[in-house]
Design a protein around this nucleic acid. Structure first.
Length: 543
DNA sequence: AAATAGGAGTATT
DNA sequence: AATACTCCTATTT
């Protein structure tokens, strides 16, 4: 049937430079022998230095007058290289592709049924192509052409005031917890839904909370059930937004799978949706896997106007995908495993933890623990159901016991509380890491979590680095821009790596040996003045 | 003593 | 085949 144009890839594996030749624009001399001679990135860097450059980037001009950094790394991409290398005209992104994994495909069918692209686009609030073009022009030329936002986007109709009013406190709270700026759009997004869907939303509220037939008892969305309904509504809305955007842009719901073009399309779309103004696209010239590894500060520094919003949006996508994978896994597990126990949730003090975790924490902290609600559904759980049935980290780790040798900590008899807590904390790390890693492979299937072992060490390190709140004591950036970082706790980092790769015997000696292999590959290096435990990502990887 | 460096064989994917 | 794991010796900090 329908196939993703960018077939699922082991995303970053493609990034690792191997012995392939560099693309034409990078060749100083069109001499294939010379290229053969410099077959690694390290060689290339050296060659560049000999040429007086010292930079890993060449500026390749493309139609539009601007230059885009091109990296030798691109040479090893075996799928959709950035089209503007040869031709800046991006092919229409609205290629009808498979329904995003696990989505209901009613809307897809609708799209497939549409006789022409134009017909389809008419159904959207604005013309994607002209808008993209506008934005690109806006980004490319120095002339600051104002972006005109259609009235209905800025000011959704004032109906559904009740709904929006109810959403507000919930949204604000979540927003505060996640440092997100986007949720004020959710209310308007709901208001903008077609009547049929609104009805669906309202019905789902009613069925979840049949108490008085009212939406919120006493108009108080802070009551436990009202809260759950609000949250489920928020989650559904997020999922809906993700789903529709996927269809419009023709991208995977899993940001880690995005190609450079997908990232670009998403940025343009999001900046348009959120009226963020021009985004310096050249600074986001990367695959989705790299994009999701960026920290909020990095987003902000790359896009002073709206970088934080982009980050927040992306985080939502990431969370939505994690939730979807988790739900799919839970659904498949439910077929074989019997009722998981609901255990009080441990509060995780992390800015942007998985959304469902966060929301689950929220529910648990604002209500007495309800009886676990068992979903009898054998298909994908609805957002609301999942929310209520979402397992706490503790229960997930016990569920995972069969899957990972590391989640078994029944030996804890002699351990004190602190180390016990630390173990649980690490379980959480593992859990999150596992789910994000399973994203990378794009598998919604129940795959018993070995996907994390697919990750490369340098990716893993960046992952740790991107969570300073969690791992700052083990590894941290010394100079983010230059990609210089320091391993503060070599034992811990090695332990985490070993856990991720299911290598109980991993230690820093072995880990550092792997890092040293990166020298030759041009992924990492020691800093000029070599310091203990300080390494530096080479340029394309430092992004 | 711990970290660094890199050779070499093996395992995993 | 690529990447990482493992074990190793030698050297540096």
């Amino acid at each position: 049937m329908l196939v993703y144009p960018h077939s699922p890839i082991d995303s970053m594996a493609q990034l690792v430079p191997c012995s392939a030749a560099f693309p034409q624009p990078l060749m100083q001399q069109p001499n294939s022998a010379a290229i053969q001679a410099s077959s690694t990135l390290a060689d290339f860097n050296q060659q560049q230095q000999h040429n007086g450059g010292g930079q890993n980037f060449l500026e390749v001009p493309y139609a539009g007058g601007q230059t885009v950094p091109s990296s030798p790394t691109f040479s090893t991409w075996n799928y959709s290289p950035p089209s503007y290398w040869s031709d800046y005209n991006r092919s229409p992104p609205m290629v009808i592709k498979s329904e995003p994994l696990g989505c209901n495909n009613s809307q897809t069918d609708e799209i497939v049924a549409a006789s022409s692209l134009e017909e389809l686009l008419d159904d959207y609030t604005f013309d994607y192509y002209s808008d993209i073009k506008d934005l690109e022009e806006n980004n490319n030329s120095s002339s600051s052409k104002p972006i005109t936002i259609k009235q209905e986007e800025q000011q959704p109709n004032q109906g559904h005031a009740l709904l929006r009013q109810c959403l507000r406190p919930a949204a604000d709270d979540y927003q505060q917890r996640c440092h997100l700026q986007f949720l004020n759009q959710i209310g308007s997004a709901i208001a903008a839904l077609p009547p049929a869907q609104q009805q669906h939303q309202e019905m789902s509220i009613k069925t979840e909370k049949p108490a008085n037939g009212a939406y919120w008892p006493n108009g108080n969305p802070n009551s436990a059930q009202g809260l759950a309904s609000v949250l489920s509504l928020v989650m559904e809305q997020v999922n809906e937004e993700v789903r529709s955007t996927c269809e419009i842009l023709g991208v995977s719901p899993n940001p880690s799978q995005w190609s450079v073009d997908d990232v670009r399309a998403w940025l343009l779309w999001t900046s348009r949706q959120c009226a963020l103004g021009p985004i310096p696209l050249e600074r986001f010239h990367m695959e989705g896997a790299v994009l999701v590894a960026l920290t909020e500060e990095e987003f902000r520094s790359r896009a002073p106007q709206g970088g934080d919003t982009l980050y927040a949006k992306l985080d939502i996508w990431r969370s939505a995908w994690n939730q979807r994978s988790a739900a799919a896994a839970a659904a498949s597990k439910a077929a074989t495993v019997s009722t998981p126990q609901m255990v009080p949730t441990i509060q995780v003090d992390e800015p942007c933890a998985d959304m469902s975790d966060l929301l689950a924490c929220w529910i648990n902290t604002t209500q007495d623990l309800q009886q676990p609600q068992q979903s009898s559904s054998n298909s994908m759980l609805s957002a609301g159901q999942h929310l209520l049935a979402v397992p706490s980290p503790a229960s997930t780790s016990s569920q995972r016991g069969a899957l990972s040798p590391y989640s078994d900590h029944t030996h804890s008899g002699s351990e004190d509380m602190a180390s016990e807590m630390e173990e649980i904390e690490e379980e959480e790390d593992e859990e999150r890491a596992g789910s994000s890693a399973s994203c990378r492979t794009g598998q919604t299937a129940p795959t018993p979590s070995p996907n994390g072992s697919h990750i490369h060490l340098w990716q893993f390190l960046k992952e740790l680095l991107s969570q300073p709140a969690v791992h700052g004591s083990a590894i941290r950036w010394l100079d983010r821009q230059r990609g210089v970082f320091k391993i503060e706790d070599s034992v811990r980092v090695a332990k985490l790596w070993g856990k991720r790769k299911n290598r109980p015997a991993m230690n820093y000696d072995k880990l550092s040996r792997s890092i040293r292999q990166y020298y030759r590959k041009g992924i990492m290096k020691k800093t000029e003045r070599s310091q203990r435990l300080v390494y530096q990502f080479c340029q394309p990887y430092a992004l």
